[in-house]
Design a protein around this nucleic acid. Structure first.
Lengths: 385, 385
DNA sequence: GGCCTAACTGAATCCTTCG
DNA sequence: GCGAAGGATTCAGTTAGGC
């Protein structure tokens, strides 16, 4: 089904863009898809071609600046992030590091690709400001509201119960991917909001080695699932510069996306490779998602007239029958001295800046009053392959 | 009650600090308490003594950078923030402005005072980075989750459903005020989290002049109420450099805090003065409406799919197995050529006007057939706060 | 007054394609 | 790059008016 959609999309696109597609495919052949590049992520990204990936998901070090040890009220010790990779001398050092990897990420991204970064209040403000300075255009900030956060044991602050993600395109005019309909469906037919309630990663999902957690900041797969479903298409290439134990890779594989990871620590790489090998790709039918009308085949109103679904001369009207118009042979409408397309005349009569004629105009059909969009749906069903 | 706390605090502190308190009290006499300083806030703050206020609450311009007009799907026009005070040439200009007022705020704050700033993704990352650069120490970032945000009318992004507040002390070692007990009580004996669900300011609370809103971005009093209750004591001095229509002043008066405002626009000052004069100190009945109920644990079907409780591709069916469908990656269902949400497809297949998908659809789970609602209950139990 | 429905509103970086 | 035309797009809450 997804291939059908893709083929249809290709048919509707110009020859130039198809050539670009082929060029991309060839470049893709040289991309290290499904591989973890060992070493510093900036160096690793330098080896990737410019404008070659569709999305970057980054979970950089948070620069937590933790003080001494922390104990719970019962005296037990809290296992904090004390790894060397989270240590920076100063904000200046952290900023330079951030600017470095963001610059490479920007180069590697396709013009219509997008960037995701996750962080906490320790680092996210610096990351956000720097990515704006580099020319990224913020589309949303997303709050991951943790269903079960660690409490503040000392009672000195509010429970830190969320993390922040930034979603950004490469620039103001970029045409990024957003699967609006799939998100709306995922959220019980309400628009998906900028605050996401998801549990933290624990239980069976949390990877352990020798009885303790394999990585201190493993993200839940559900988070990556929503990110990828929302802002990539099947077959897209997702790059994660801070791969860790490979959550991005595991979810990408499940969702039929390609992936590339960068990681410095050999231990994490070993865990990630084993983990991704076990991730089961979903089959085609499960991967199909609800499509926006934007992606559906276009039906012009004139087509319904030509094929006899609506006869020329038919009277059509708005829901309250405040306005009445007649259909002409070319699919245009007349109402008194005014005329125009279904959209244009609807807007004109209402004095509105725009109007969706498909839902505005109604017609009597089989004894019932229906919006003309209902006829379009019937037409589509009847002419389906 | 608050005085008791204060007395205890005084007893526990040294003689030097008590002297400092007395010095502060004398300085306080010269502070323009309960007054709105007209003009630019940086200039106004320069007239205030160093280390003289206990808290700064700032709601600076967000630098929204809006494009053209926006209309709702019904054709109505969205009344946007187009005021001159929100216009900046560039990020550089905005940063300089931000650094200017934050520097003065820092000087005016007492060593153990704290700073609050509210913003959106347009500006908050810049504000956060700059205040860190100035030496402020972030204590929490707080997410105001709007119960009723404006939707994204064009379906191009996630609904921007929150704003972010930063709470910071003057430095890492500062002994800031945090009324832990009061917050826990306000939150039904659970620690107050970093995400607050509150309605936007509307209805009777929204101040109008000549039938239209007096200020485009009036904040709800409930927000200020929680901020002040959490991080100031009775009698503390609260400074608001962007006073607007005086929400900070009105809440300060009600809660027995002193306040100082800065505001450039004479129109806003007039509104604020009238408003604060009418604010009744400690209106207990209003207090109850301030306590928002905890976010209703609403779970969308898609969330069960994302979190792996129901895998994409899973077969689900009605009780009599008359209808069978398969789950897709976005939480939609397919059955033959039909597809839709759990509710929509259920209705469609039965030819019914509506259907409760949660009780209609069943799934095999642990060898038993259960309605999917049972899985939702399990999920809720597992992720409960 | 009470109930029902229509109209209105909110810090918003809010379309796409073709000529 | 720009203008014109096609056509896709909303949620929770309050207020006002009709009956």
């Amino acid at each position: 089904m997804a291939t059908v959609v893709k083929a249809r999309a290709a048919r509707q696109r110009g020859a130039t863009e198809q050539l670009a597609d082929r060029a991309e495919a060839e470049k893709g052949a040289s991309l290290p898809l499904g591989r973890i590049l060992e070493g510093d992520c900036i160096a690793a990204m330098r080896g990737l071609p410019t404008a070659s990936v569709d999305m970057v998901f980054a979970d950089p070090p948070y620069n937590l600046q933790l003080g001494g040890d922390l104990n719970r009220p019962d005296g037990s010790h809290v296992d904090a992030v004390t790894d060397a990779w989270d240590k920076f001398d100063s904000f200046k050092t952290y900023d330079a590091f951030t600017k470095g990897w963001l610059t490479e990420a920007r180069r590697v991204l396709k013009p219509n690709g997008s960037l995701w970064v996750i962080g906490s209040y320790h680092n996210i403000f610096r990351v956000g400001a720097i990515l704006q300075d580099l020319g990224f255009w913020i589309l949303n900030d997303i709050v991951w509201r943790k269903a079960n956060p660690m409490p503040n044991f000392k009672g000195t602050r509010f429970t830190n119960a969320h993390e922040t993600l930034i979603w950004a395109s490469t620039g103001e005019k970029a045409r990024y991917t957003f699967n609006y309909r799939a998100m709306k469906t995922l959220n019980d037919e309400l628009q998906m909001r900028s605050d996401w309630v998801l549990p933290i990663c624990g239980g069976a999902e949390r990877i352990k080695r020798d009885g303790s957690k394999a990585h201190p900041t493993q993200k839940p797969e559900a988070l990556l699932y929503r990110v990828m479903l929302a802002t990539t298409n099947k077959g897209d290439v997702v790059l994660d510069p801070f791969f860790g134990t490979g959550t991005t890779g595991a979810v990408a594989r499940r969702l039929g996306r390609e992936w590339i990871g960068c990681e410095r620590e050999a231990d994490y790489i070993a865990v990630a490779e084993e983990r991704i090998a076990m991730a089961l790709p979903l089959d085609e039918s499960a991967l199909t998602t609800m499509q926006s009308p934007r992606a559906a085949p276009k039906v012009a109103f004139g087509q319904l007239v030509e094929t006899g679904w609506i006869a020329p001369g038919t009277e059509i009207f708005d829901k309250k029958r405040k306005f009445v118009a007649h259909v002409r042979a070319d699919g245009s409408l007349t109402s008194g001295s005014a005329c125009g397309s279904i959209h244009g005349l609807g807007a004109q009569l209402q004095g509105a800046p725009s109007c969706n004629g498909w839902s505005f105009w109604h017609v009597e059909h089989g004894g019932e009053v229906k919006p003309i969009d209902a006829l379009r749906q019937l037409y589509l069903l009847a002419t389906e392959d």
